[in-house]
């Protein structure tokens, strides 16, 4: 997630450069042919071009809005996961009856909270297509890791482990069925959050939303110098390239934020959010928490 006020040019330029340079060459060629070469037939009326530009702007704005909806939903889902994780930790520590003479109950409470920490890290890795086991090794034993390796969906498997732990708490440690149901409801809500994230991850924007704006922007930018050259002459490349920059940037913004789980600067800051959850939960357990994560070069990951 970008948290800085402005983007450095060296980060933006590589993504726009190829298209802009090509368009600038075209603009210059058209301007020179028209002014120096006398190829007046190159000029087309600018009025229809203006109308096409307006229609394209509306199309691009609509698409960017759709992409933003996906990005915001992803952020909202992770915000909900932060709250649900805190709720689960609170429920684990207060609803499961703690017997101070019995270390097993406290160990069970702690394991439940640690599994939730594992879960958020595993979900982050799952969404970013990253292997989670090196991170989970510090909380889980080799046998549990080996079990998880067999699973295609590691976070879902961790949720199942938590549910089994709750059943164990009911059968062996006297967890009240009503309390059990309450904690299980939290687990169900967490499952829903994961499902929402997976839906965004696995369902791309309709390809028409991706293909046609790109095609239309390229077509419009290529037509621009022909519409401007009659009025602007040799200044056409400057005006045309500037207008092209606006349309290309609008197109790129929509395309870049439509996938919020791709390990890019536009991502939902899952590393930071999962660290926040870890800090909260480990402090709830009375353990030493890791340090908070801050933006790096204005980007929060």
């Amino acid at each position: 997630m970008i948290v800085r006020d402005h983007l450095p040019w060296f980060r933006v330029w590589p993504q726009l450069s190829r298209q802009l340079v090509l368009l600038f060459v075209l603009d210059t060629t058209v301007a020179v042919l028209y002014v120096v070469g006398g190829a007046t037939f190159l000029a087309v009326p600018s009025l229809p071009l203006g109308m096409v530009g307006s229609a394209l702007s509306i199309f691009l704005a609509f698409r960017t809005s759709s992409a933003y909806d996906r990005w915001w939903e992803a952020r909202a889902l992770w915000g909900r996961l932060v709250n649900l994780s805190r709720t689960l930790a609170r429920q684990a520590l207060t609803l499961i009856p703690a017997d101070h003479r019995n270390d097993q109950t406290r160990a069970l409470q702690r394991r439940l909270v640690l599994l939730q920490i594992c879960y958020v890290h595993a979900l982050r890795c799952h969404l970013r297509q990253q292997m989670p086991f090196a991170e989970l090794r510090q909380w889980l034993d080799a046998e549990t890791i080996a079990q998880l390796r067999q699973q295609a969906n590691v976070p879902a498997a961790l949720l199942l482990m938590m549910a089994e732990l709750l059943r164990d708490a009911h059968e062996r440690h006297g967890l009240d069925p009503i309390m059990w149901a309450a904690i299980d409801r939290t687990l169900t809500d967490i499952t829903d959050v994961q499902g929402g994230c997976e839906r965004i991850k696995n369902t791309p924007m309709p390809k028409q939303y991706d293909y046609f704006p790109r095609l239309l922007v390229s077509f419009f930018c290529a037509l621009l110098p022909f519409g401007l050259v009659e009025g602007l002459g040799l200044l056409t490349p400057i005006a045309s390239s500037s207008l092209s920059l606006i349309f290309i940037t609008l197109d790129r913004i929509g395309r870049e934020i439509e996938q919020p789980f791709e390990n890019t600067v536009q991502d939902t800051p899952m590393t930071s959010l999962s660290r926040t959850i870890e800090i909260n939960l480990r402090q709830t357990l009375g353990e030493r928490a890791p340090r908070e994560l801050y933006p790096v070069s204005g980007f929060l990951y």
């Binding site: 982050r124 090196a134 090794r137 510090q138 590393t271």
Partner: peptide
């Protein structure tokens, strides 16, 4: 501070 925050998951290794 930026270096500390870079690649936060590496703290788990």
């Amino acid at each position: 501070r930026e270096l500390e925050s870079f690649l936060g998951e590496a703290d788990h290794y």
